[in-house]
Amino acid sequence: MDILGYDFMTNALLGALFAAITAGLAGTYIVSRRMVFLGGGITHASFGGIGIGYFFGFNPIVGASLFGVASALCVEYLSVRQKIREDSAIGILWALGMATGIIFIYLTPGYAPDLMGYLFGSLLTISTGDIVALGVLSLVLISYFTVFYRTLMYISYDETYARTYSSSVSIFKYITTALVALAVVLNIRMAGIILVLSLLTIPPNIAMIFTSSYLKIIIGSIIVGFAGTVTGLVISYFINIPTGATIVFVLALIWIISKLLRGWVEKRW
């Protein structure tokens, strides 16, 4: 394989692996808890941090992480306190983040380099720093979900009941939400703000076609996510089309085929 000879391809493959791991774990959590809309909110709110990063001249992903995590915690807090409906809070933060980002990018003198990369993803130009960040987050998420597997699963299933035997339900929710927000934001480098949500939501939905065990959904989404990302990467490399979009396209295709396959199998047996 000639393309493996290039440094950026190794980077891209590592990126794909870590993206699959982080998106698979975070994705299974948000899909099974029906929090996909929160995922969308986090993604778009983080654009505010990207704009501020450009304006003040620091790494936009750092800004995006701060914005993403802060808005996710904010939504959890508001909905726990029941001061405002959760979906309304998400809608407000979603637009507020986008508005902040647009204003600060407009105010930034000169040209905003790689803005397209943040919007649409740029797996092939992903930096070593991005890879390291995703790698560390992968390790953290794997350890966290391994150690607290049942705790997290039972809180997701029935939070009210979990509160009858545990006093740390809120702490777990905040920590998990913050980690999910980080997973979303760091994957923006892979697929871009516009497309990142599908990286988290399509693989668990593919896995759920074949299994209804939480653990198998996690493992299945990581495998499918990795396969889909690499396939998309190779296709986009050879026919020279945008990588993020190709990956999402491949994943959606796998989802459709799986659905059809499952329907066909059920009809035959």
């Binding site: 705790t151 039972y154 299933y157 545990s166």
Partner: peptide, 27 residues
């Protein structure tokens, strides 16, 4: 009234086992 999400990917056995969570340390 059950407050759980019945379409959550969890088996009946897992739900029964959750009654033991109070006796369990994480991990």
């Amino acid at each position: 009234i059950s407050t759980g999400d019945n379409s959550f990917p969890l088996s009946v056995l897992d739900v029964v086992l959750s009654g033991l969570m109070i006796h369990k340390s994480p991990g």
